[in-house]
Design a protein around this nucleic acid. Structure first.
Lengths: 212, 212
DNA sequence: GGAAGTTGGCTAATGTGGTTAGCCAAAAGC
DNA sequence: GCTTTTGGCTAACCACATTAGCCAACTTCC
């Protein structure tokens, strides 16, 4: 019985690749084992369960996506930064649908690594939004808006939810431009019930509970 | 052996309810059978498979959601219609997360009923957008934008993707208002490569292939 | 009212996929 | 080289979807 030279990292990496190829929901221990030239139970020497494997893929996903978004937006500000962020996001997810699906599992409160990375990505987003001079209490709304729109768009796009009749790139531009319009307008901070200045919801580090 | 009085419709309805309670991914033939006071194989006398059950829930979902959106927007136009549409959508999905998840399975090309209902909902959306005098080739973009943003927002919200720190209602308003701003701006129809007037991508009925 | 037919329960059994137990050789450490 | 640890493997188990085939309960029709 020669050894296959697997490691937790290589198993997770192969799992991520397989998820992209077959779709996240079709990722199976048996298929992954086959891909790695090994019998199914052998995988358990490297990952404790399918769930753990998916968690590993998730962490990998956020790491890679974070790196990508960082590279894409470095040196940019304002609308250009938002557009670059959005495009990089869409293209990365388009190339890695399985990974992205795995990444959607929110990190549990006990998952320090996941929390850390989620927070890191959030910081990139806040940096991108910094150029718009939004009132403090609006920044969270803006981040959620951008996240929502991007997530929704790529999810529907990957699921084939858009017909083929009209250029999808153009639609994507429309979404992003609309949000930029909203950011520019500032959409007055119609009192959030919290006095200015003591707003504890700005882009700081209290977001360890969940990504915002 | 007394009879349980099940019908395909009642089984689907119970499945939808169970999906809302337990989450779509936890919906299982065994649990549904238990809920209905029956053994698992008995369900197969009413639905041909788990997949068929989910398809049934999906159809139900779009029917109910369509009805809800229709009611919410009837008699409204422009920004008010968009806001009403968005609010109704969010609240319905918030109350029916399992159903909504089931509804995400895009109807296959062979599924006439699913196609019909999807198209119907699309028509509501187009009606809501009609008040903005968008150039013909922009309407599809606008519809996709609204769908994406709403879908992304409710999905992240239901998944607990937003922290608890800041009012989520306000963030939702921000997303919707941003899109309305984009719709108002019209975001000039920077040539879509198709001559005006012959645009075959407007809000008509060619969308039988997939919802747009 | 009852005989025949259909319907809708049931138990038993199969297959797939995740997971554990426990064996044994290969690599690593001394 | 000998011991220990590690990473393969087979066998077995469990959950869940699904099918086969039995049999009672409703329905129909005389």
């Amino acid at each position: 019985m020669p050894r296959a030279g697997l490691t937790p990292a290589s198993v997770v990496a192969a799992g991520a690749e397989l998820a992209d190829e077959l779709g996240y929901e079709n990722l199976t221990m048996g298929l992954l084992a086959e891909r790695l030239g090994v019998r199914t139970p052998s995988l358990y020497k490297h990952v404790s369960s399918l769930d753990a494997l998916c968690h590993g893929i998730s962490v990998e996903t956020w790491r890679e996506l974070g790196e990508t978004l960082m590279r894409a937006t470095v040196g940019l500000a304002g609308p250009a930064a938002v557009r670059a962020y959005a495009d990089a996001f869409r293209h990365w997810v388009g190339r890695h649908p399985g990974r992205y699906a795995a990444g959607l599992r929110a990190p549990g409160p006990d998952d320090a690594e996941g929390q850390r990375i989620a927070n890191e990505i959030l910081q990139i987003l806040y940096a991108v939004l910094a150029g718009f001079d939004l009132p403090g209490s609006r920044v969270v709304d803006a981040a959620r808006a951008l996240r929502s729109a991007l997530h929704g768009f790529v999810t529907l796009e990957n699921a084939g939810g858009f017909g083929l009749n009209r250029d999808v790139d153009r639609s994507f531009t429309f979404v992003v431009d609309s949000l930029i319009a909203g950011l520019r307008a500032g959409l007055s901070d119609e009192d959030s019930g919290q006095p200015e200045g003591t707003d504890h919801n700005g882009p700081r580090h209290e977001y360890h509970g969940s990504d915002d």
